[in-house]
Simulated assay, not measured.
Amino acid sequence: MTNPTHLPPEALDSWTRAACDELGLDRSDVDIALILDLARDVAHGVARPAAPVTAYLAGLAAGRGTMTPEDAVRRVSSRATQWSS
């Protein structure tokens, strides 16, 4: 069985729609590019395993109304690009 290293854009969109349906979310509220940029910044600036955890944390902050999704991503992306452990 092969495991593709790159997901074609149409498959990512299809998965996002399916996940949104499953979670009762509106697909139009999901900015895939914003999330991928966050994951890139964290994976490169901190560590790869930190990317999904950080995406979850940003989503949690946005979902709780602590800040907008864009502000949450901007803040942790900025922190990740300045990170030195």
Rank of each mutant, 00 (worst) to 15 (best):
29 D>Q: 14
59 G>C: 04
55 A>K: 04
5 T>W: 04
68 T>A: 15
35 I>Q: 08
49 P>S: 15
57 L>P: 00
42 V>E: 02
30 V>D: 01
67 M>S: 14
76 V>L: 15
46 V>E: 07
47 A>Q: 15
54 T>S: 13
14 S>H: 11
36 L>G: 07
5 T>K: 09
8 P>R: 10
81 T>Q: 13
58 A>C: 14
76 V>F: 06
36 L>F: 07
84 S>E: 14
50 A>W: 06
48 R>H: 09
27 R>M: 06
82 Q>R: 13
8 P>A: 15
80 A>E: 03
19 A>F: 10
55 A>G: 03
37 D>G: 13
13 D>A: 15
58 A>K: 00
79 R>Q: 11
17 R>F: 06
83 W>I: 01
68 T>C: 12
23 L>V: 04
85 S>Q: 15
79 R>W: 09
58 A>M: 04
68 T>V: 07
21 D>T: 13
55 A>H: 02
69 P>A: 10
39 A>K: 03
25 L>G: 02
72 A>W: 01
33 A>C: 05
57 L>N: 01
83 W>C: 06
38 L>G: 02
66 T>E: 14
83 W>Q: 06
67 M>E: 12
4 P>T: 06
82 Q>K: 08
56 Y>M: 14
42 V>P: 00
71 D>H: 13
8 P>C: 09
84 S>C: 11
35 I>K: 02
5 T>L: 11
64 R>H: 15
69 P>V: 06
50 A>Y: 03
17 R>V: 11
46 V>Y: 05
68 T>Q: 09
29 D>Y: 05
22 E>S: 11
23 L>Q: 11
12 L>M: 10
22 E>V: 01
47 A>L: 12
14 S>V: 05
71 D>Q: 12
83 W>H: 15
7 L>Q: 10
17 R>N: 11
74 R>K: 12
75 R>M: 10
13 D>Y: 01
